[in-house]
């Protein structure tokens, strides 16, 4: 499995489509930061909220796209078939790609979050927009949700046997859930969806703000509605469903004829 993981990471570095997607994602994230008021003098805590709002919709799209590309590209052109013909267990084929997708997606999201936050914190300090512990807790939960998302798209990609269908699901699924949440929210109907898409949106919703005053200055403060109970529910749901998708997908792939 380690050999497959190494080969996949090597291939990912050379995948032009992924590199273009990554560049576009970084560009969009940077543009959203600037558009939402971040500048060189913004505190780390403030920019963390801005980034969270940026990632609200994009996380599932990016994670779904990267996972489907990493797992599905070799399925579509049948190069993954050769791993089985080489004598690799189907588990190595499946989990090797899963771990490659997990490493890449977590790295990309972490880079988008941590680089501006750590840079601006070092320059301007953390600030008071959100407590540090809360920010780290949200980031930690985000990683777990990315795990769930990667598990889902890995299973879907291996069942479909290509990268196109899961990519479409990532794009369309996210938009549909976002639209439903928006429309229902407008009608003042709040549902507990607990889907991969909606949990990430709930976690990264930093749109509720208030202001505080200290040292003669006004400060932006984020009202993060993340109770301990909600965080625990999100953690358990993400891990539980993630493992369900991951091993369920493998159980089906194991018995599947590969075209």
């Amino acid at each position: 499995m380690l050999n497959i993981l190494k080969a996949m990471l090597r291939q990912t570095k050379r995948d032009k489509l992924l590199l273009i997607g990554l560049f576009y994602f970084l560009l969009m994230a940077g543009e959203m930061l600037v558009q939402n008021g971040a500048d060189w003098n913004t505190h780390g805590s403030t920019v963390s909220g801005i980034i969270a709002n940026t990632l609200l919709i994009m996380t599932t799209v990016v994670v779904g796209a990267f996972t489907s590309r990493i797992c599905g590209c070799d399925l579509r052109d049948k190069t993954a078939n050769y791993e089985i013909l080489f004598g690799k267990h189907r588990s190595a084929v499946y989990f090797g790609r899963f771990f490659a997708a997990l490493i890449v997606t977590v790295s990309v999201i972490a880079a988008v979050v941590l680089i501006p936050v750590l840079f601006l914190t070092a320059k301007n300090g953390w600030g008071a927009a959100i407590p540090v512990q809360t920010a780290w807790a949200i980031f930690g939960l985000l990683i777990v949700m990315i795990f769930r998302c990667v598990c889902f798209f890995t299973a879907l990609t291996f069942l479909c046997g290509n990268d196109i269908v899961p990519l479409s699901v990532a794009l369309i699924g996210t938009m549909c859930v976002a639209l439903c949440v928006f429309l229902l929210g407008a009608a003042d109907i709040h549902l507990s969806w607990q889907t991969t898409f909606s949990d990430i949106m709930t976690l990264l919703d930093f749109s509720n703000t208030t202001s505080g005053y200290a040292d003669g200055k006004d400060y932006l403060i984020y009202k993060v509605a993340l109770s301990g109970k909600t965080a625990l529910r999100m953690l358990c749901t993400s891990l539980g469903f993630g493992l369900f998708w991951l091993f369920g997908g493998f159980a089906l792939f194991r018995k599947k004829d590969i075209p």
């Binding site: 050999n3 497959i4 190494k6 080969a7 090597r10 291939q11 050769y82 791993e83 080489f86 690799k88």
Partner: peptide, 8 residues
Amino acid sequence: EKLRLQKG
């Protein structure tokens, strides 16, 4: 080269 890595 990619095959070589995959085959170990």
